[in-house]
Design a protein around this nucleic acid. Structure first.
Lengths: 130, 130
DNA sequence: TGTTCATCTGAGCATTTGTTCATATATTAA
DNA sequence: TTAATATATGAACAAATGCTCAGATGAACA
């Protein structure tokens, strides 16, 4: 993925606009890190896991039952959520209880619902519960 | 992808917890809609596009120059952003000027930066600019 | 010690994603 | 109309994703 700047077609470039915005732009790594954060919430099962944990801490097999997926699938997803620091856990014997890592996660998910509520009525119902 | 509930191994289920949370859980469609919203921001080039448009409206080829991608790639990404109602555009002759659809997008991206700022120092710098 | 059970992990595989390339649209100007 | 240009689109393909399945950990208890 090399990146040339003496580019093909485009003659329409507004120089001042491009220069202005380019100066403030995110680097590739920074954009990637941001994308990774959102990617963590970009799957329905992970959304369900986060949503479930907003109510209370739950162990892996409870989560599996609640969202209707296999223990293994949930465990895989939890690994990603752990890596991105969206969830934490405590051990009690054989059982691991997962919970949200901090309050910002609530806000992130809430903001997503807020955006959806523009086009879907059901979203408003959940906003009241958070 | 059928979903059986007389499930395999797990004997550890805490019934009251599972029932409690299950009652409040998102449906499959609702979780999918939420996931789709986050999925829209789950790519570095789309993050860059949104970030660029937070400064000012830009045409397709300006966006391409700013984020360092082809016109075609940007156009494909813009379609997704349009579908999810994150951006809108106005036409002026041959040129289409894109801008953010509403203020919630800013907040969403800001919340993402907020989460990142827990582990990466650079994120704080951008939070001041928003 | 060995067994049971909750969870994790890696491999394999079908699906999805994001790009490129070639071509199609649509608007403007000659 | 024809040519030029900004953007959109579809096919194709490599890369990433999310599942299942089989097996590995690690803790409790006989």
């Amino acid at each position: 993925m090399p990146m040339q700047f003496d580019r093909c077609g485009s003659q329409c470039i507004h120089e001042e606009a491009v220069n202005d915005v380019s100066r403030k732009m995110l680097s590739g790594e920074e954009a990637q890190a941001l994308a990774d954060t959102f990617k963590t919430l970009a799957d329905p099962n992970r959304v369900k896991i986060i949503f479930a944990l907003m109510n209370r801490e739950l162990c892996v097999c409870d989560l599996a039952a609640v969202i209707g997926a296999s223990d293994s699938a949930v465990s895989h997803q939890l690994r990603m959520l752990r890596t991105q620091k969206l969830v934490k856990f405590r051990r009690e014997g054989k059982i691991l209880y997962y919970s949200l890592a901090d309050e910002h996660i609530d806000t992130l998910l809430k903001q997503g619902l807020e955006h959806i509520s523009h086009s879907k009525e059901w979203a408003a119902r959940f906003l009241e519960l958070i």
